[in-house]
């Protein structure tokens, strides 16, 4: 390598660092920093009126899954916490599954339209992003509440005699999250299906595959990266959802997000809130590693 090429390479390397510096700065201080603070706080003692006392304690971490009896000091499983964790995981999984069931045909239809039609449909998919999440969730609330649009309409038609009790239930939370996160499933699926070579369908069909086999043996395995991306994009925010369960689930149907908020607010237990947050992060990370490993194994033994 000549001296000039060497200098050029060094300049390129320096420019690369310079260009990525702002991003690195933001990532370090805005993402890693708060995480570190949370981790530290989770090992401290709660103050009387919120905040923390700088005294080491593992109480918060024990408290995530166990509860201490105030009278005899014995530990038992914290049923309330576990119920909330379980509800969060369950609702997030169901939401991910249903956004896929609804999103796959939607993405397929968009990807197989003419270019003009496709642009228009994709535009429609992005419209919900224009409106604030809070307002959209309140809109859903207006539709499904006891005196809401849906019930009024059904009562008027005479289909039902009493309003359907949808609002403030797990089902309402699921409904709201499916609506909110659907675009996050549709867009990566669309990107994957758009790259899919439709001629492969004819090839499989020609080689004696039934319609179901074409879907299962050819289409789904090939668009799998889109399914993985969409599932991750829906599952992670669903697991940490705050606004939707707050507005549609009422006080009783809390998810982890609400529970964490509670610790920093009325609960006045910042270390527990911090420990729960870190735990949520760990659950997501473990679930991700697990999921990616499974899906990549399935595609490599094909």
């Amino acid at each position: 390598m000549s001296a000039r090429e060497d200098g050029q390479a060094r300049r390129d390397a320096r420019n690369t660092w310079l260009l990525s510096a702002p991003a690195l700065f933001i990532l370090t201080f805005a993402a890693a920093g708060p995480l570190l603070i949370m981790l530290v706080y989770s090992f401290l003692t709660p103050g009387d009126y919120g905040n923390v006392v700088w005294k080491f304690s593992t109480d918060a971490w024990v408290g995530t899954v166990l509860s201490k009896d105030i009278f005899d000091g014995t530990y038992s499983l914290a049923d309330a916490h576990l119920t909330i964790f379980w509800r969060s995981v369950k609702l997030s999984l169901i939401t991910t599954f249903f956004t896929f069931i609804v999103g796959f045909p939607t993405a397929w239809i968009i990807a197989t339209r003419s270019p003009r039609m496709r642009t228009a449909l994709l535009f429609l998919i992005t419209i919900p992003f224009w409106t604030n999440l809070l307002i959209r969730t309140f809109a859903i609330n207006q539709i499904i509440r006891n005196e809401g649009l849906l019930n009024t309409f059904l009562l008027y038609l005479g289909v039902i005699d009493e309003p359907l009790l949808i609002i403030y239930s797990d089902f309402a939370v699921f409904l709201g999250m499916t609506y909110v996160y659907l675009p996050l499933m549709v867009l990566p699926l669309f990107a994957a299906i758009d790259r899919f070579d439709m001629r492969l369908i004819e090839a499989a069909y020609d080689l004696y595959a039934s319609r179901w086999q074409v879907l299962r043996r050819v289409i789904l395995p090939i668009v799998r990266p889109g399914i993985v991306a969409g599932s991750i994009l829906v599952f992670i925010p669903a697991l940490g959802a705050y606004v939707t369960p707050r507005i549609l689930g009422g006080g009783r149907n809390m998810m982890i997000g609400n529970f964490i908020e509670l610790q920093f607010g009325q609960g006045r237990n910042w270390p527990l809130g911090a420990a729960l947050s870190v735990l949520l992060l760990v659950i997501v990370a473990v679930a991700l590693v697990f999921y990616v490993r499974i899906t990549s194994r399935e595609s490599s033994n094909g």
Binding site: V218, I222, S299, G302
Partner: peptide, 10 residues
């Protein structure tokens, strides 16, 4: 097929 249409994942 003219494009061969081989299954890329297999």
């Amino acid at each position: 097929f003219q494009s061969y249409a081989l299954f890329p994942h297999l």
